[in-house]
Design a protein around this nucleic acid. Structure first.
Lengths: 330, 330
DNA sequence: GTGAAAGCGCTAACAC
DNA sequence: GTGTTAGCGCTTTCAC
């Protein structure tokens, strides 16, 4: 900047004023400054700007695994929205490791980020309170933190569980299995609750041999299906709590000589891109992944503008996407 | 920091010295400072540190689409390695838009990043030269920039094309189609070249009706397959230049009543996770996606340490992964 | 072993 | 409409 001022023959503050349009500058001086800037390829040092202004334009995004297609889609929503609002996003993967999460959070704070997005993170009540005490804007995505008021964006997982199950019931199925996720996570538990609710509503007795626990990975869906289909009285339909497990179910069924959907209906959850490409294409419950990212980012930036506003919780709806993996009970 | 100094009853520079271990401090003063830091929850302001030290610990990562499973995997390699080396990564999606890329690059420079990773970016010779003149460390990934010496990490796409084609030839196929990508991109062209080389080597005449151009999306593979399989003399095998298109090929074939691999062999490229889950699982050419990210990051950080070192080009190998979508010609 | 002081590049308040 | 100045929070010489 000093260089530009010298080159243009004006004071350093004049340069600053034309850069920031912060006040009137004679058109002659302005054009000289502009010329000097161009000649020197000047770009203001954002570090200095931010230090002085006591604000930054970057936000931290903490996710378990940005390569997981679900989070990848959420992350795109976040990055696109941040870009629109002139913010950069700092990518942090935790792999579910609390220490890694803490290390990332620490670094983000030191870098004075404008806010932090915790996506499906193992975030504790204490951490939230600590950050709030530090005046760090944050929003938590896809998790509920007990005993503390904090901006949150959630999907209505229970509704999704209901839709999946109701769809199968509507097709005439009564023996409906469920491959659940880790039961300690609220989204997973909610999906299962939706399943149970709809069963009950339709007067179908709950049979616990028909729910088997998975871990959201392909292999666990495969394993669960082999187990379920070996039952004396096997299910005619299965609701898998995510798409990856659903694909595992289809593979196992196919391998055991069952045709999908004619002999076994399968519905997944999430509607990742992969779901359209399986054979048959997967009927599933769509979460508004991209929108989750968009909304969370907007919420964070709003929070950064007003730390005192009352916390908000936004709940998004799921949608049943009917493709080729479900059919009427024959 | 001022607060900490006051609270500990020492000078501000003493605090700095204990924080940075930059020189001997009496153990008594040290423990007083430590206590004060803990009591006040002090975290040094990285903005100020970086401004003063004239260096930062963030790197910019520019990718077309971080939700694309291929780039997502590369990005994980980048983020993991950066984290190991105490660097943060700023995520920038361009969607192939040159203006967006320019905007991101500009912002990264203003933020004084330690370096920039251009992944599969439409990066011009001029841009590289401009950045080099600015002393900005950079490495370009998965693209070749003509007429300029710059750190680069590439996959041997031609080798991959050879492996895919040779595999099909080994299985007895002679009528082998190819669904290519956009021909203007060097990786895509190289894969096609590998295909042609192996055909020629085996004395199979090149038939241009057997190569149809796609765009790396599922739909284009689907379309290409419908076209190819409607030929008077349809192929018995197809090499699709990425996995998504390969899956499209399989869908089209299945829909037209052909069984894969018995009646049509299909091989893809990339080995994205999806490839293991298709029905049948996809035979494909694996790129070391994660390693690409790891190596590129190490290269960038090395460059940041020594701007003057001669540019390096690292070429990584592909690997044929045989799964269920290819079979001997019957 | 400790403190004072200058300055990284910038902005904003304050003169003129 | 323009220039001078103080200072953001930190590091690093320099003096003691």
């Amino acid at each position: 900047m000093r260089d530009v001022a010298q080159h243009a023959g004006v004071s350093i503050s004049t340069v600053s004023h034309v850069v920031n349009n912060s006040r009137a500058v004679s058109s002659e001086a302005r054009s000289r400054v502009l010329a000097a800037m161009k000649a020197l390829g000047y770009k203001p040092n954002a570090l200095a700007q931010n230090l002085r202004r006591q604000q930054t334009f970057s936000i931290g995004m903490i996710v378990p695994d940005s390569a997981n297609p679900f989070f990848a889609e959420v992350a795109r929503g976040i990055e696109d929205t941040s870009f629109e609002q002139n913010h950069s996003v700092i990518l942090c993967n935790t792999d579910g490791d609390v220490d890694k999460q803490a290390a990332h959070t620490d670094l983000l704070i030191k870098n004075q980020v404008a806010g932090i997005l915790f996506v499906a993170a193992g975030i504790s009540t204490e951490l939230v309170e600590d950050l709030q005490a530090r005046q760090v804007p944050l929003v938590v995505v896809d998790r509920e933190v007990p005993d503390v008021a904090v901006d949150t964006v959630l999907t209505n997982h229970r509704q999704g569980g209901c839709q999946a199950t109701q769809h199968l019931i509507d097709l005439g199925h009564r023996r409906i299995a469920c491959v659940s996720g880790g039961s300690d996570l609220s989204p997973s538990a909610e999906r299962l609750t939706g399943y149970q609710m709809k069963l009950q509503e339709s007067g179908i007795p709950f049979d616990e041999t028909l729910v088997v626990k998975g871990d959201f990975q392909y292999a666990s869906g495969y394993r669960a299906a082999r187990q379920l289909l070996s039952l004396a009285e096997p299910p005619t339909a299965v609701f898998a709590c995510n798409d990856l497990m659903a694909v595992g179910v289809i593979s196992a069924a196919t391998e055991m000589g069952l045709r999908v959907p004619e002999e076994l209906s399968v519905v997944g959850f999430d509607d990742v891109r992969l779901a359209s490409f399986t054979n048959p294409p997967l009927t599933t419950i769509a979460q508004p992944k991209y929108d989750i990212g968009v909304i969370a980012t907007k919420m964070l930036l709003a929070r950064a503008r007003n730390l005192a506003a009352p916390p908000r919780v936004e709940q998004l709806e799921t949608e049943l996407i009917i493709r080729g993996s479900t059919a009427p009970l024959s």
